[in-house]
Design a protein around this nucleic acid. Structure first.
Lengths: 212, 212
DNA sequence: CGAATGGTTGATTGTGATCAATTCCCGTGG
DNA sequence: CCACGGGAATTGATCACAATCAACCATTCG
């Protein structure tokens, strides 16, 4: 088992001990296994989802075969709502995961109120992502990514649920560059590579300085 | 005069002849001259705005001095609403422009309904921007940019209100690369450079193929 | 044990950044 | 009208960084 979010209690909808806001119109939970597809780009956007456990990615493919990862969603995050009638991204399970689907209804209250806050949350993330990609260097992007996924983590040790390819496609780099850049950050004493998927952040300050 | 949106009628709030949706809580219009600042990152986000005429950019500076342009807003677009209490970007006038400010009120109906659709619109744009920046080549980014700003334009000739530096900061490139890439696209017969700020799109299909 | 997958490391190439002149475009003033 | 000046844009030469191509290593699984 890659992920181990043992604190999930479906009964009261709490993740890691933190109770979640009510999720209007929730349906029974669904399980997906690693690398399976939750929905595909172009499908009718009948539902949006909240992640209960595991990690989900939304992505899209260019016609030259390159994959662009739009975002990662961790427990508590909501994804899959759309301005239009169809999904603009494909959603896939990075790890085995559990999600709560929720039928889209015709923009009633208080659903809109809730969705609005979600949309703003997503907006901020997408803008941050664009800024990350606009920044020149691989080190800057990598530093930004590490800070992004380690936010809300007080402990210095990160478990990365995603592969190097996932990271590369999220940062607009190649796996080789991701690997080299991590090695380089380790040489700078900003991080320590405990294992391929385990990273200790030894100097958050240095990462922040790197990504500006 | 750089911009010439002569069809603006303030009386009935129409832009280029197309009537705009009502703008709840609108205040008297404001004018800003080229390169002036509408608000700065960190200011209290008291208002959001709709562009009546001209072009507005939202941007942010990294501590190494590099500028990242988040988005351009043209007549009819709404910008400046925020998840938090302060602006996360600086807004500047690319050209002389006129905007309608609107006080943020405490999330009442039907304001939220309206803001929700704006947020989703912004979200889609920010995601598209991130994807543009994630794509490798300068030609791909440039092609994507040209398609983006020429959408809703049937005529083949584009008037660019922004400088090469603006384009560069939006695409995460340098002005030299922007210039060279445009020249290259011209050699491919995808566009024709009529003047520095006038571009004719001769093959939209080729641009689409380039950016995938 | 061998195959498969994911990750790292090395050598080389290619693309865009950087540094450095020019050229173009406009508005101004003689 | 033309000369001039200044900002914007283009073009050229070189350099740096990440992509690519290619082995190689580590771990897991049959």
């Amino acid at each position: 088992m890659l992920t181990a979010n043992r604190q999930v209690h479906l009964g009261n909808l709490a993740v890691a001990g933190v109770p979640l806001a009510p999720f209007p119109g929730a349906q029974p939970v669904m399980h997906f296994s690693q690398d399976s597809t939750l929905y595909e780009e172009g499908d009718d956007a009948t539902c949006y989802y909240r992640v209960v456990s595991g990690l989900v990615r939304t992505c899209r493919f260019s016609q030259d075969g390159r994959r662009h990862i739009d975002a990662f969603y961790k427990p508590g995050d909501v994804f899959g709502f759309e301005p239009g009638a169809t999904y603009r991204f494909t959603a896939e399970a990075v790890t085995d995961c559990t999600v709560i689907p929720c039928r889209r209804r015709g923009a009633e209250e208080p659903e809109v109120q809730y969705l609005y806050s979600c949309a703003m949350e997503h907006l901020a993330r997408a803008q941050a992502h664009a800024q990350l990609l606009g920044r020149g260097g691989a080190a800057q992007r990598m530093a930004g990514f590490l800070l992004e996924i380690s936010v809300h983590k007080q402990a210095g040790v990160l478990e990365l649920p995603m592969t190097r390819q996932d990271i590369a496609d999220y940062l607009g780099l190649t796996i080789e560059t991701v690997s080299r850049t991590l090695a380089q950050l380790q040489k700078l004493r900003a991080i320590r590579l405990l294992a391929a998927r385990r990273i200790e952040i030894t100097s958050r300050a240095m990462l922040q300085e790197l990504c500006g």
